[in-house]
Protein backbone atom coordinates (compact mmCIF):
# COMPACT_ATOMS: atom_id res chain seq x y z
CA UNK A 1 0.00 0.00 0.00
CA UNK A 2 2.63 2.47 1.01
CA UNK A 3 5.39 1.06 -1.12
CA UNK A 4 3.43 1.12 -4.34
CA UNK A 5 3.20 4.86 -5.02
CA UNK A 6 6.87 5.17 -4.06
CA UNK A 7 8.12 3.34 -7.08
CA UNK A 8 6.19 5.57 -9.43
CA UNK A 9 7.73 8.72 -8.04
CA UNK A 10 11.26 7.38 -7.94
CA UNK A 11 11.11 5.82 -11.36
CA UNK A 12 10.10 9.15 -12.82
CA UNK A 13 12.51 11.56 -11.23
CA UNK A 14 15.53 9.87 -9.69
CA UNK A 15 16.06 6.49 -11.23
CA UNK A 16 16.09 7.26 -14.92
CA UNK A 17 18.89 9.86 -14.94
CA UNK A 18 20.97 7.57 -12.74
CA UNK A 19 20.60 4.75 -15.20
CA UNK A 20 21.55 6.96 -18.07
CA UNK A 21 24.78 7.90 -16.33
CA UNK A 22 25.75 4.34 -15.57
CA UNK A 23 24.11 1.90 -17.98
CA UNK A 24 23.34 -1.48 -16.47
CA UNK A 25 24.65 -4.61 -18.16
CA UNK A 26 22.07 -6.91 -19.75
CA UNK A 27 19.47 -4.21 -19.68
CA UNK A 28 17.38 -5.90 -22.36
CA UNK A 29 17.31 -9.20 -20.52
CA UNK A 30 16.44 -7.56 -17.23
CA UNK A 31 13.57 -5.72 -18.82
CA UNK A 32 12.38 -8.86 -20.54
CA UNK A 33 12.32 -10.80 -17.27
CA UNK A 34 10.85 -8.13 -15.04
CA UNK A 35 8.59 -6.01 -17.23
CA UNK A 36 5.86 -8.60 -17.94
CA UNK A 37 5.43 -9.29 -14.25
CA UNK A 38 5.72 -5.66 -13.22
CA UNK A 39 3.29 -4.49 -15.90
CA UNK A 40 0.70 -6.94 -14.64
CA UNK A 41 1.57 -6.07 -11.04
CA UNK A 42 0.88 -2.42 -11.74
CA UNK A 43 -2.31 -3.30 -13.60
CA UNK A 44 -3.68 -5.67 -10.97
CA UNK A 45 -2.28 -4.24 -7.72
CA UNK A 46 -1.31 -0.61 -8.14
CA UNK A 47 -3.94 0.65 -10.57
CA UNK A 48 -6.90 -0.63 -8.53
CA UNK A 49 -5.51 1.13 -5.46
CA UNK A 50 -5.30 4.42 -7.31
CA UNK A 51 -8.69 3.75 -8.86
CA UNK A 52 -10.17 3.05 -5.41
CA UNK A 53 -8.76 6.20 -3.95
CA UNK A 54 -10.13 8.29 -6.82
CA UNK A 55 -13.49 6.52 -6.75
CA UNK A 56 -13.76 7.06 -3.01
CA UNK A 57 -13.86 10.81 -3.57
CA UNK A 58 -17.01 10.62 -5.68
CA UNK A 59 -20.66 9.88 -4.98
CA UNK A 60 -23.68 9.13 -7.12
CA UNK A 61 -26.16 11.99 -7.09
CA UNK A 62 -29.69 12.30 -8.40
CA UNK A 63 -32.29 14.98 -7.96
CA UNK A 64 -36.04 15.36 -7.51
CA UNK A 65 -37.75 11.95 -7.49
CA UNK A 66 -34.48 10.28 -8.39
CA UNK A 67 -35.53 8.87 -11.75
CA UNK A 68 -33.32 11.10 -13.88
CA UNK A 69 -29.90 9.93 -15.02
CA UNK A 70 -27.67 9.81 -11.91
CA UNK A 71 -24.31 11.51 -12.07
CA UNK A 72 -20.95 11.20 -10.33
CA UNK A 73 -20.14 14.18 -8.15
CA UNK A 74 -16.86 14.99 -6.40
CA UNK A 75 -17.51 14.90 -2.66
CA UNK A 76 -14.02 15.09 -1.17
CA UNK A 77 -13.69 13.07 2.00
CA UNK A 78 -17.44 12.73 2.52
CA UNK A 79 -17.41 8.96 1.92
CA UNK A 80 -14.68 8.56 4.53
CA UNK A 81 -16.59 10.70 6.98
CA UNK A 82 -19.66 8.58 6.32
CA UNK A 83 -17.74 5.38 6.94
CA UNK A 84 -16.18 6.67 10.13
CA UNK A 85 -19.59 7.75 11.36
CA UNK A 86 -21.29 4.52 10.31
CA UNK A 87 -22.00 2.13 13.18
CA UNK A 88 -22.18 -0.76 10.71
CA UNK A 89 -18.64 -0.08 9.54
CA UNK A 90 -17.31 -0.04 13.09
CA UNK A 91 -19.31 -3.11 14.00
CA UNK A 92 -17.96 -4.98 10.98
CA UNK A 93 -14.40 -3.87 11.69
CA UNK A 94 -14.79 -4.71 15.37
CA UNK A 95 -15.96 -8.22 14.50
CA UNK A 96 -12.96 -9.06 12.37
CA UNK A 97 -10.58 -7.57 14.92
CA UNK A 98 -12.17 -9.64 17.67
CA UNK A 99 -12.11 -12.64 15.36
CA UNK A 100 -8.42 -12.07 14.63
CA UNK A 101 -7.39 -11.46 18.22
CA UNK A 102 -8.85 -14.79 19.26
CA UNK A 103 -8.70 -16.99 16.19
CA UNK A 104 -5.16 -16.24 15.01
CA UNK A 105 -3.47 -17.02 18.36
CA UNK A 106 -5.64 -20.10 18.90
CA UNK A 107 -4.89 -21.43 15.44
CA UNK A 108 -1.17 -20.66 15.56
CA UNK A 109 -0.89 -21.85 19.16
CA UNK A 110 -2.58 -25.10 18.18
CA UNK A 111 -0.38 -25.43 15.12
CA UNK A 112 2.76 -24.78 17.18
CA UNK A 113 1.72 -27.29 19.83
CA UNK A 114 0.97 -29.99 17.28
CA UNK A 115 4.18 -29.23 15.43
CA UNK A 116 6.17 -29.56 18.67
CA UNK A 117 4.43 -32.84 19.44
CA UNK A 118 5.18 -34.14 15.95
CA UNK A 119 8.77 -33.03 16.33
CA UNK A 120 9.12 -34.61 19.76
CA UNK A 121 10.88 -37.84 20.37
CA UNK A 122 7.61 -39.44 21.50
CA UNK A 123 5.84 -39.04 18.17
CA UNK A 124 5.21 -41.96 15.80
CA UNK A 125 3.78 -42.10 12.26
CA UNK A 126 4.68 -38.47 11.78
CA UNK A 127 4.16 -38.48 8.02
CA UNK A 128 0.67 -39.94 8.39
CA UNK A 129 -0.45 -37.32 10.90
CA UNK A 130 1.11 -34.60 8.82
CA UNK A 131 -0.96 -35.52 5.78
CA UNK A 132 -4.16 -35.89 7.81
CA UNK A 133 -3.73 -32.44 9.33
CA UNK A 134 -3.04 -30.90 5.98
CA UNK A 135 -6.04 -32.48 4.25
CA UNK A 136 -8.56 -29.68 5.02
CA UNK A 137 -6.34 -27.23 3.14
CA UNK A 138 -7.31 -29.04 -0.04
CA UNK A 139 -10.95 -28.12 0.60
CA UNK A 140 -11.70 -24.75 -1.02
CA UNK A 141 -12.65 -22.16 1.62
CA UNK A 142 -16.18 -21.68 0.38
CA UNK A 143 -16.79 -25.42 0.18
CA UNK A 144 -15.44 -25.79 3.70
CA UNK A 145 -17.84 -23.08 4.81
CA UNK A 146 -20.78 -24.83 3.14
CA UNK A 147 -19.72 -28.13 4.67
CA UNK A 148 -19.57 -26.66 8.16
CA UNK A 149 -22.76 -24.70 7.59
CA UNK A 150 -24.50 -28.05 7.19
CA UNK A 151 -22.75 -29.34 10.30
CA UNK A 152 -24.09 -26.31 12.20
CA UNK A 153 -27.56 -26.14 10.67
CA UNK A 154 -30.17 -27.26 13.21
CA UNK A 155 -32.04 -29.24 10.55
CA UNK A 156 -29.10 -31.30 9.39
CA UNK A 157 -26.35 -31.19 12.00
CA UNK A 158 -25.32 -34.53 13.49
CA UNK A 159 -23.85 -32.57 16.42
CA UNK A 160 -27.15 -30.87 17.19
CA UNK A 161 -28.94 -34.22 16.86
CA UNK A 162 -26.43 -35.79 19.21
CA UNK A 163 -26.83 -32.89 21.63
CA UNK A 164 -30.59 -33.31 21.55
CA UNK A 165 -30.34 -36.98 22.41
CA UNK A 166 -28.16 -36.05 25.41
CA UNK A 167 -30.55 -33.28 26.38
CA UNK A 168 -28.08 -30.54 25.49
CA UNK A 169 -29.31 -27.65 23.38
CA UNK A 170 -26.50 -26.91 20.94
CA UNK A 171 -26.84 -23.72 18.95
CA UNK A 172 -23.93 -22.94 16.65
CA UNK A 173 -25.69 -20.01 15.00
CA UNK A 174 -26.64 -17.85 17.99
CA UNK A 175 -25.58 -14.19 17.99
CA UNK A 176 -22.81 -14.75 20.52
CA UNK A 177 -21.65 -18.04 19.09
CA UNK A 178 -21.70 -17.69 15.34
CA UNK A 179 -18.46 -15.68 15.12
CA UNK A 180 -16.65 -18.52 16.85
CA UNK A 181 -18.37 -21.08 14.69
CA UNK A 182 -16.81 -19.26 11.75
CA UNK A 183 -13.47 -19.05 13.52
CA UNK A 184 -13.63 -22.81 13.80
CA UNK A 185 -14.06 -23.13 10.02
CA UNK A 186 -11.03 -20.93 9.34
CA UNK A 187 -9.01 -22.81 11.95
CA UNK A 188 -10.03 -26.15 10.48
CA UNK A 189 -8.93 -25.15 6.99
CA UNK A 190 -5.66 -23.41 7.82
CA UNK A 191 -4.28 -24.95 11.00
CA UNK A 192 -2.66 -27.88 9.22
CA UNK A 193 -1.15 -25.60 6.63
CA UNK A 194 0.41 -23.37 9.28
CA UNK A 195 1.48 -26.40 11.23
CA UNK A 196 3.50 -27.65 8.27
CA UNK A 197 5.29 -24.34 7.88
CA UNK A 198 6.20 -24.36 11.57
CA UNK A 199 7.14 -28.02 11.46
CA UNK A 200 9.46 -27.49 8.50
CA UNK A 201 11.13 -24.76 10.41
CA UNK A 202 11.44 -26.96 13.53
CA UNK A 203 12.98 -29.77 11.59
CA UNK A 204 15.63 -27.48 10.20
CA UNK A 205 17.06 -26.92 13.70
CA UNK A 206 20.29 -28.87 14.07
CA UNK A 207 19.62 -31.87 16.29
CA UNK A 208 22.88 -31.61 18.25
CA UNK A 209 21.50 -28.57 20.07
CA UNK A 210 18.96 -30.88 21.72
CA UNK A 211 21.54 -33.50 22.58
CA UNK A 212 23.60 -30.89 24.39
CA UNK A 213 20.58 -29.68 26.34
CA UNK A 214 19.58 -33.22 27.25
CA UNK A 215 23.05 -33.91 28.56
CA UNK A 216 22.60 -30.84 30.75
CA UNK A 217 19.45 -32.47 32.10
CA UNK A 218 16.84 -30.27 30.41
CA UNK A 219 13.37 -31.77 30.08
CA UNK A 220 11.69 -32.17 26.68
CA UNK A 221 9.28 -29.35 27.53
CA UNK A 222 12.16 -27.16 28.52
CA UNK A 223 13.93 -27.92 25.22
CA UNK A 224 10.78 -27.21 23.27
CA UNK A 225 10.17 -23.91 24.99
CA UNK A 226 13.72 -22.57 25.29
CA UNK A 227 15.41 -23.95 22.20
CA UNK A 228 12.80 -24.83 19.61
CA UNK A 229 10.23 -22.07 19.94
CA UNK A 230 12.69 -19.14 19.70
CA UNK A 231 14.16 -20.60 16.53
CA UNK A 232 10.83 -20.91 14.76
CA UNK A 233 9.89 -17.31 15.47
CA UNK A 234 10.35 -16.27 11.81
CA UNK A 235 7.89 -19.00 10.80
CA UNK A 236 5.46 -17.77 13.43
CA UNK A 237 5.83 -14.21 12.19
CA UNK A 238 5.19 -15.34 8.64
CA UNK A 239 2.14 -17.42 9.48
CA UNK A 240 0.93 -14.65 11.78
CA UNK A 241 1.11 -11.97 9.11
CA UNK A 242 -0.59 -14.29 6.62
CA UNK A 243 -3.36 -15.07 9.06
CA UNK A 244 -3.92 -11.41 9.88
CA UNK A 245 -4.19 -10.52 6.20
CA UNK A 246 -6.55 -13.45 5.74
CA UNK A 247 -8.70 -12.35 8.67
CA UNK A 248 -9.04 -8.82 7.32
CA UNK A 249 -10.51 -10.11 4.11
CA UNK A 250 -12.74 -12.66 5.81
CA UNK A 251 -15.58 -13.29 3.40
CA UNK A 252 -16.36 -16.92 2.53
CA UNK A 253 -17.50 -18.00 5.97
CA UNK A 254 -19.85 -15.08 6.75
CA UNK A 255 -21.19 -15.00 3.21
CA UNK A 256 -22.15 -18.67 3.46
CA UNK A 257 -23.43 -18.44 7.04
CA UNK A 258 -25.55 -15.42 6.15
CA UNK A 259 -27.90 -17.77 4.30
CA UNK A 260 -28.69 -19.85 7.37
CA UNK A 261 -27.89 -17.68 10.40
CA UNK A 262 -29.98 -14.72 11.56
CA UNK A 263 -27.02 -13.41 13.51
CA UNK A 264 -25.00 -12.83 10.33
CA UNK A 265 -26.22 -9.63 8.71
CA UNK A 266 -25.54 -8.55 5.15
CA UNK A 267 -22.78 -6.23 6.40
CA UNK A 268 -21.30 -8.62 8.93
CA UNK A 269 -17.69 -8.09 7.84
CA UNK A 270 -16.10 -5.20 5.92
CA UNK A 271 -15.80 -7.15 2.67
CA UNK A 272 -19.53 -7.90 2.73
CA UNK A 273 -20.25 -4.29 3.63
CA UNK A 274 -18.20 -3.07 0.66
CA UNK A 275 -19.76 -5.59 -1.70
CA UNK A 276 -23.27 -4.65 -0.58
CA UNK A 277 -22.51 -0.95 -0.99
CA UNK A 278 -21.25 -1.58 -4.51
CA UNK A 279 -23.73 -4.08 -5.86
CA UNK A 280 -26.88 -3.51 -3.84
CA UNK A 281 -26.77 0.22 -3.14
CA UNK A 282 -24.82 1.09 -6.29
CA UNK A 283 -22.60 3.24 -4.06
CA UNK A 284 -19.14 2.52 -5.43
CA UNK A 285 -17.67 5.59 -3.76
CA UNK A 286 -18.60 4.31 -0.33
CA UNK A 287 -17.46 0.79 -1.21
CA UNK A 288 -14.09 2.19 -2.27
CA UNK A 289 -13.74 4.29 0.87
CA UNK A 290 -14.38 1.22 3.02
CA UNK A 291 -11.79 -0.74 1.04
CA UNK A 292 -9.18 1.98 1.35
CA UNK A 293 -9.74 2.30 5.10
CA UNK A 294 -9.42 -1.43 5.50
CA UNK A 295 -6.20 -1.51 3.48
CA UNK A 296 -4.79 1.15 5.81
CA UNK A 297 -5.84 -0.89 8.84
CA UNK A 298 -4.21 -3.96 7.24
CA UNK A 299 -0.97 -2.10 6.70
CA UNK A 300 -0.91 -0.70 10.24
CA UNK A 301 -1.66 -4.02 11.88
CA UNK A 302 0.95 -5.86 9.82
CA UNK A 303 3.60 -3.29 10.66
CA UNK A 304 2.75 -3.27 14.36
CA UNK A 305 2.67 -7.07 14.52
CA UNK A 306 5.96 -7.32 12.66
CA UNK A 307 7.61 -4.76 14.95
CA UNK A 308 6.42 -6.47 18.11
CA UNK A 309 7.30 -9.95 16.91
CA UNK A 310 10.77 -8.93 15.80
CA UNK A 311 11.66 -6.59 18.66
CA UNK A 312 11.33 -9.23 21.35
CA UNK A 313 13.79 -11.23 19.32
CA UNK A 314 16.66 -9.05 20.54
Amino acid sequence: MTAAPLIDRRAGSELRPALRRRPTRFRGAILMFTVPFMALFVFVYVAPIIYSVVQSLFATQSSGLGFGEPEQVFVGAANYAKALGDTEFWAALGRILLFGIVQVPVMLGGALLLALLLDSAAARWVSVYRVLYFLPYAVPGVIAAVLWAYLYSPALSPFVAWGDSMGIDLDFLGPNVVLWSMANITTWVFMGYNLLIILSSLQAIPRDQFEAARLDGASEWRIAWSIKVPQVRPALVLTGVNSIIGTLQLFNEPQVMHVIADAVSSSYVPTMLAMGAAFVKNDFGYASAVSVLLAIVAGLISIVYYRIAMRSDA
Partner: peptide, 30 residues
Protein backbone atom coordinates in the same frame (compact mmCIF):
# COMPACT_ATOMS: atom_id res chain seq x y z
CA UNK B 1 21.43 -9.28 -12.29
CA UNK B 2 22.75 -6.14 -10.69
CA UNK B 3 20.60 -3.14 -11.36
CA UNK B 4 19.52 0.05 -9.66
CA UNK B 5 16.23 -0.16 -7.81
CA UNK B 6 16.47 -3.89 -7.41
CA UNK B 7 15.81 -3.80 -3.69
CA UNK B 8 12.98 -1.36 -4.10
CA UNK B 9 11.44 -3.54 -6.78
CA UNK B 10 11.61 -6.62 -4.61
CA UNK B 11 10.28 -4.74 -1.59
CA UNK B 12 7.36 -3.40 -3.58
CA UNK B 13 6.46 -6.84 -4.85
CA UNK B 14 6.63 -8.33 -1.38
CA UNK B 15 4.52 -5.42 -0.20
CA UNK B 16 1.86 -6.87 -2.45
CA UNK B 17 1.77 -9.87 -0.15
CA UNK B 18 0.61 -7.64 2.67
CA UNK B 19 -2.35 -6.29 0.76
CA UNK B 20 -5.64 -8.09 1.31
CA UNK B 21 -6.37 -9.05 -2.29
CA UNK B 22 -10.12 -9.11 -1.73
CA UNK B 23 -10.03 -5.34 -1.28
CA UNK B 24 -8.72 -4.93 -4.81
CA UNK B 25 -11.48 -6.98 -6.34
CA UNK B 26 -14.24 -4.39 -6.50
CA UNK B 27 -12.05 -1.65 -8.04
CA UNK B 28 -10.56 -4.24 -10.36
CA UNK B 29 -14.07 -5.16 -11.36
CA UNK B 30 -14.83 -1.53 -12.22
Amino acid sequence: YEFRGRGLLFGTILGGLLLPAALLTVPLYL
